[in-house]
Design a protein around this nucleic acid. Structure first.
Lengths: 108, 108
DNA sequence: CTCTTGTATCGATGGTTGTCGATACAAGAT
DNA sequence: ATCTTGTATCGACAACCATCGATACAAGAG
């Protein structure tokens, strides 16, 4: 019941985290914890890749449902979608030795 | 704080989970919970892809450090490397809002 | 209006990935 | 040795991806 969503959605989220730049982006966005989100202008200079690449990775994270954004004036702010990290943790918990509430084999 | 390992290793693990077949493989292997591991012969027929593809994905998971295997006679058995899921959960926990229940750190 | 700065999109490119069939390797059975 | 079954590797191919420079779009300043 925890995640009735298929493996596809969760796998897509893990896939989005499967790039070092994107993983660090998400952690940086999550670490800010401000309701207003993190300005892209703070993220871009923290990486050794170009600005279009950062923009591309942010789009990937957004399409995976991990983050969302909003433009306020000149700047664009990103934040972590609430609850999505918990859902991924839940899937990982299914792979822990003691937790076996959901059967992965029982898909059909 | 907890993971001294760089984002690269963790990202590689998430990347390995970023394919629906691999994610389901890992969940199936983890669900078995037997010390002997899960026989490949139980995994292969559970998917709509060919046997070489399953073998390839198992190799990917193994190279990401998520699972390990051993041959016993004719069959090969796979199991989840102990502790690796916990480490991924730890990284995800770093992306959770630190709602400290004990004291108000007053970060806002 | 123009100029500047922040961000996204476009187009191209080299590298990676998922998949398959064919085949090699491993091990037990006959 | 030969046959059969289980598993891994090889070679190939199409699709995808991360990255870049160039450029378009957005919004404020002068």
């Amino acid at each position: 019941m925890s995640n009735q969503v298929g493996d596809g959605e969760v796998a897509a989220a893990f896939k989005a985290l499967g790039d070092p730049v994107r993983l660090r982006l998400l952690l940086m966005i999550a670490a800010a914890q401000t309701e207003q989100g993190v300005c892209v202008c703070q993220l871009t200079p923290a990486f050794a890749v170009s600005q279009p690449t950062i923009s591309h990775h942010l789009k990937q994270l957004r399409q995976a449902g991990l983050i969302d954004c909003e433009r306020r004036g000149t700047w664009v702010y990103y934040w972590v979608v609430p609850g999505v990290i918990e859902r991924l943790s839940g899937t990982l918990a299914d792979a822990l030795p003691e937790a076996a509430p959901v059967s992965a084999t029982g898909r059909g």
